[in-house]
Amino acid sequence: MSEDVITVITTVTEIVAGEFGLPVAAVDADVDLSSLEGADSVKVLRAVAKIERTYDIELEDDQVFGLKTVRDAATLVVATLAEKEPSGGGR
């Protein structure tokens, strides 16, 4: 499980860095997203959209309201995936 989170953190970090136009090294898993250089709500939502496409999941707005860091986002992705495919089966 924790390995899952780490893999997802890596992917989410790449997505966030890509949407914000920052080097991956500048996006720490625990940094407040709103303090990143170039942060605004539009970029955050675009990153969320890319995360949704990458994992084929849908995140509700009120779940996104609670996101502060990359780790928060990765934890939400893992939980949503677990809900969607409890046995790891196909779609």
Partner: peptide
Amino acid sequence: CPLPLPTMAR
């Protein structure tokens, strides 16, 4: 009095 919603935690 409509209250705003956040886009993310802030």
